[in-house]
């Protein structure tokens, strides 16, 4: 059974139909990417799944449960974490306080220490900078913080929106390695939205191509990496 199942999702901004009835699924343990050009509707899709944006139609199931109309904050308790586009860390709080907020949905003090150790192992730089005001971190460090914050909730499903945006190749590699590591070590399922299609496809079990509100193509990561139209549209020709 799919961990996340999206059925005929529609999202409108006023009269503009941004998502026009898309369906896809993410199975337990997979890394699935959703690729597409600027304005294709990737962020809109994630926001609608997380319910920080109202849907105009369709249904979403998580772990067999209908979560179409659940409140955004309830989804965190169910095991969905969302690393939003543009990171959106709390810039006035310290690194440590941001990480603490990531644990908001959980209670156990011992588990807190474990999760904290885990994210500090993934991103040692955050431990060094734990008392720094988060707004003063570099872009790459902020992305790491946003990801750590999400991991603190011990998610079953991690939604990531363009973690590579604006980062140097070195940081991109670090982030993608950690995504794979989290997937492997904690069994966390990942839905990854990316414009950096090559990188995303290379770590994905499956992928969907989103084109102005519709899914135009789907396949395994390697199938799409070798697909002629994908190469032309998203992998820079070659």
């Amino acid at each position: 059974m799919a961990l996340l199942e999206v059925q005929n999702l529609e999202v409108n901004y006023g009269l503009i139909k941004a998502i026009k009835g898309i369906s896809f699924e993410v199975n337990q343990g997979e890394i699935v990417s959703l690729i597409g050009a600027n304005g294709a509707g990737k962020t809109t899709t994630l926001h609608a799944i997380s319910n920080i944006l109202p849907k105009s139609g369709g249904k979403v199931f998580f772990d067999g449960e209908d979560i179409t109309d659940k409140k955004a904050h309830e989804l965190v308790y169910m095991g969905i974490a969302h690393v939003p586009e543009g990171r959106r860390i709390f810039s006035e709080l310290t690194v440590y306080e941001n990480i603490q907020l990531g644990f908001f949905s959980r209670k156990d003090k011992r588990e807190y220490e474990q999760s904290l150790q885990m994210v500090y192992e993934y991103f040692p730089v955050l431990q060094e900078r734990q008392n720094q005001i988060a707004g003063t971190l570099s872009g790459g460090e902020q992305q790491m913080l946003a990801m750590s914050r999400a991991l603190m909730s011990k998610p079953k499903l991690l939604l990531m929106d363009e973690p590579s945006m604006g980062l140097s190749p070195l940081y991109v590699n670090t982030i993608f390695e950690i995504v794979q590591k989290v997937n492997r070590e904690s069994g966390t399922t990942v839905l990854l939205v990316e414009q950096n299609a090559k990188k995303a496809l290379s770590i994905s079990s499956r992928a969907y191509v989103l084109e102005i509100g519709n899914i135009s193509l789907t396949g395994t990561g390697s199938e799409l990496l070798n697909n002629k139209s994908v190469i032309e549209a998203y992998l820079g020709g070659e």
Binding site: H73, P84, R88, S91, G102, F104, S105, R149
Partner: peptide, 12 residues
């Protein structure tokens, strides 16, 4: 600071 990001932390 950011209502939606707070919701994504599980804040009601």
């Amino acid at each position: 600071e950011d209502r939606k990001a707070a919701q994504l932390m599980g804040v009601n």
